[in-house]
Design a protein around this nucleic acid. Structure first.
Lengths: 230, 230
DNA sequence: CCAAAAGTGTTGAGAGTACACCCATGC
DNA sequence: GCATGGGTGTACTCTCAACACTTTTGG
């Protein structure tokens, strides 16, 4: 057998990407979903997805899908995993690679979202989803929680300036539990990646809270810091 | 456009699995590699891999590859991620999904390994590898370290009975750093997943060390225990 | 007796948690 | 003045890391 035959004898598969798009608004973590425009399960709520082209990497395909559905480029994307149960899509054998994306809801293009029949859903009100998408969302959420425990997230989800309370509420949304305000503050400031600005936000409290932003020269949190050494 | 067309217009891809097979022997973490039997890069050291069939899940395909190369079934397998750079395989566009596997070297079939032109390589002596396999190995190693920090590994890598020193040496191999014997012992026993047996191993010390095994009724370490709560 | 691993105990530093408590201000 | 969030400080607990020390036994 020539090596060409070795390849050509192998089967070819439809390859899709599905994006779990997280956004944060009104103290809630949200998911961007749209109504599936084609059979099977037309009209069912679905993750944003699309097929991977023959000269695209999966990452490129995911970026394309994201751009089409939000109008945004250079979005934070992280691969979750491949889902390949032969029966996961009843219409055809499609292997899907899931990504999660972090979006600033205030920056995306609402017209485009509308046009796609899409909607932001609070994480704890997500409707029934088509195919194996519930499982994909579950895995993506776990990965987001993992990421947030290893480094300070927020740059991709919050406005350029934010208060520590806003950041805390984001973490509360990600972990779905309350955090002590004082302890959170000390912990986060100790990481040395935030910088206090001279402006205050007085919308959410009478006293007003200082705005912070991520230090542009962030000394790359050493990553492993929170991985426990057994 | 009918929905059938929606699918048939999409491109189809070669889908492969590559297995990063970890084993543990002589206090060293090892990798099972073989010489690539076909072009391109014939004869280069390579991960065990194979194409995914049209009715297989990726997990099934990985299990098949593992069975072919070690003679073992029911191996611990975990998906790492998909690698999809269009140029990763110079001969064709092949998307590969990587898995890592944990093997008891003493249980595998050495004849089969021989026949495949395969060899166990200590982790820190791994030769140059074909394609993007070095990157795949790197990612798999990170995942193994992550797994080992979240739960006690060893069931899949050590003999049925083992001493705490043997377990510690496994962790030292995974993390590539020395661990304090006393502290490791206390930490591990505190997890309450090991059970001391009445037998001793006197091969590795004059005094002899008690053998342990994983408690069959293991109360499922609560998983999140070591994920830090920010 | 000595070396070497097995196994136990002690101690100090640091992190996390649960609070108490003052500050500023809009109502 | 009082409720509300902003912000700081404190005290207790727990874990981890370092290391001393005792036990056992083959050579």
């Amino acid at each position: 057998m020539t090596y060409q035959q070795h390849y050509t004898n192998a089967s070819r598969h439809y390859l899709a990407v599905d994006c779990v798009i997280f956004g944060y608004e009104n103290y809630e973590l949200k998911l961007l979903l749209h109504k599936r425009p084609i059979e099977p399960q037309i009209g069912g709520w679905s993750l944003m997805g699309g097929f991977c082209g023959s000269d695209e990497s999966l990452e490129t395909a995911a970026n394309r899908v994201l751009h089409q559905s939000t109008g945004l480029k250079d979005i934070y994307l992280e691969q979750v995993q491949a889902f390949s149960d032969p029966d996961r899509d009843p219409a055809a054998r499609v292997v899907s690679v899931a990504f999660f994306a972090l979006i600033r809801i205030d920056k995306h293009d609402p017209a485009l979202v509308d046009e796609m029949g899409a909607r932001w859903w609070p994480m704890d009100e997500v409707p029934g989803l088509v195919f194996d998408h519930p499982r994909i969302v579950e895995k993506a959420k776990e990965r987001l929680q993992m990421k947030a425990s290893l480094e300070l997230v927020g740059k991709e989800l919050l406005p350029d300036q934010f208060t520590l309370t806003q950041l805390r509420r984001l973490y509360e949304a990600i972990y779905q539990r309350e955090l002590d305000p004082g302890n959170f503050r000390k912990k986060v400031l100790g990481l040395n990646v935030l910088e206090r600005l001279n402006t205050k936000n007085t919308e959410e409290s009478k006293k007003g809270a200082f705005n912070y932003h991520f230090r542009p020269d962030a000394d790359e949190m050493n990553g492993q810091e929170r991985i426990i050494k057994i």
